[in-house]
Design a protein around this nucleic acid. Structure first.
Length: 420
DNA sequence: TCTGGGGTCCTAGGACCC
DNA sequence: TCTGGGGTCCTAGGACCC
């Protein structure tokens, strides 16, 4: 059996842990640049604030209902996420950290346990230890565990735990669920299924397997099998190394000049390089892209990217940033208002198997030592304390984060500020 | 005024090989 | 009249997830 533990309204719950005055009140968290609503407390959902809407469109609702609004604070959420994992790890040895707010657990060797009781204990302990309310779905496959989790959340009577352990419960759950709400069935597939008269998850499972294979590829076929109770999607206890790494942001204000864009691109390149070093890899290809604001139909538009293959794979911020800036200079055109830029690194290989180059002139050992020192300093004093000169100070392009909460759990300076 | 960011997997089709 | 067969690799694009 598998369990899926999912934190309820995760980002909104994180904000509440350190600010209990918000309990019982509507809370929303916004995406980067304070753009869209990406998390809502139950109260915020109840007054009709939809997921993903631009914040300015729900401004009247926010005012009328006195909704607490926060910029996203990933340092806080990441740390709270780690606390949830730590508690769960005490209950089970095999965890898959599926996302910042979801964990799959393999429940092996528990045949003689009362799983419902076990689940209730996990849910209660996690909430008690971290302050974050969680729900748990338990079933024979990951897809069914996801489904069970939906019921655990939606239905108060379950008290946060839903167990699908018989065929009867499985079929009942499938009948009560729209196929579009199944994990792995997206909008396009749901549309296709509607055309052949399939609305519920149960109806989907009644389609012939061959039809599913033909029309929905092996991916759909796996979902079909999992809904029948046959596990096809393995637990991934060790996260695989990333095959591509991307850092991109929209700017707080539109940017026109090359020097400012250069600061941003250099910063994104450095962040990519750090992510690369964290997984002990190097990359041999790099792409830079810039584009204007495509919501502004009244302005001239320009979307462009540029790819470069490096002579030797690297994870040095200096090198990656240099190449990124060079590509930016190739694609930059004046007289456009840019809204977003990004750096993507590809062709990622383990740092232990980098292919050398006879004509290499870079002192790679030196770079490595330097990066190690920089990373240690960043970990100790904050990631923005030491950077390349080309990154500038970020004043002209940084994110808009007008409603940022303090990093209660990670930064001492913030805690002191709060107390004052 | 204002509209997020970061990933993975699969398939089809073209280029190329012997 | 007639023009093989069997592969691999790469890329772009679509679909999905949080």
């Amino acid at each position: 059996m598998y369990a899926l533990v999912d934190c309820n309204n995760f980002y909104a719950s994180c904000e509440r842990v350190f600010n209990p005055a918000l309990n019982g009140k509507p809370v929303v968290v916004l995406s980067n640049n304070d753009g869209c609503v990406i998390a809502r407390s139950q109260e915020a959902k109840d007054i009709g604030i939809a997921m993903g809407v631009p914040a300015y469109q729900v401004e009247p609702l926010i005012k009328t209902h006195n909704v607490a609004v926060f910029s996203s604070n990933y340092q806080l959420y990441g740390n709270m996420s780690e606390r949830v994992h730590a508690t769960l790890a005490e209950f089970a040895p095999e965890l898959e950290i599926y996302s910042i707010d979801e964990v799959f657990i393999r429940l092996s060797g528990m045949e003689n346990f009362d799983l419902k009781q076990f689940g209730t204990k996990v849910v209660r302990t996690t909430t008690k230890n971290t302050g974050i309310p969680v729900s748990m779905g338990i079933a024979p496959t990951k897809t069914l565990a996801k489904l069970a989790n939906r019921f655990a959340k939606k239905n108060k009577g379950y008290k946060g735990v839903c167990l699908i352990d018989t065929d009867e419960k499985r079929i009942k759950a499938l009948q009560l669920t729209e196929v579009a709400d199944i994990w792995g069935i997206g909008r396009q597939t749901a549309k296709k299924l509607a055309k052949v008269g399939v609305k519920t998850a149960f109806e989907f499972t009644q389609l012939p397997r061959a039809w599913v294979r033909k029309n929905m590829t092996v991916v759909g076929e796996k979902t079909w099998c999992e809904l029948h109770g046959e596990p096809c999607i393995e637990l991934e206890t060790v996260p695989p190394d990333k095959q591509q790494i991307c850092t991109s942001r929209s700017f707080g204000k539109m940017v026109e000049d090359l020097p400012t864009l250069t600061e941003a691109v250099s910063t994104y390149a450095s962040i990519c390089a750090r992510k690369l070093r964290n997984q002990k890899s190097c990359a041999a290809t790099l792409m830079v892209f810039i584009h204007t604001n495509n919501f502004r139909e009244d302005l001239p538009q320009y979307f462009k990217n540029s790819i470069v293959h490096l002579p030797v794979a690297t994870s040095s911020s200096l090198e990656i940033s240099q190449y990124a800036i060079r590509e930016l200079e190739r694609i930059y055109l004046p007289n456009y208002l840019y809204k977003k830029a990004g750096v993507i690194i590809l062709e990622i290989v383990p740092e232990t198997s980098v292919q050398g180059n006879l004509f290499d002139t870079v002192d790679r050992d030196k770079h490595k030592r330097l990066m190690k020192a920089v990373d240690q300093l960043s970990d100790r004093f904050g990631k923005d304390k030491m950077k390349l000169a080309s990154q500038g100070n970020g004043q002209k392009w940084k994110l808009r984060q007008e409603k940022l909460s303090p990093c209660y759990s990670t930064k001492i300076s913030d805690i002191i500020t709060v107390k004052l």
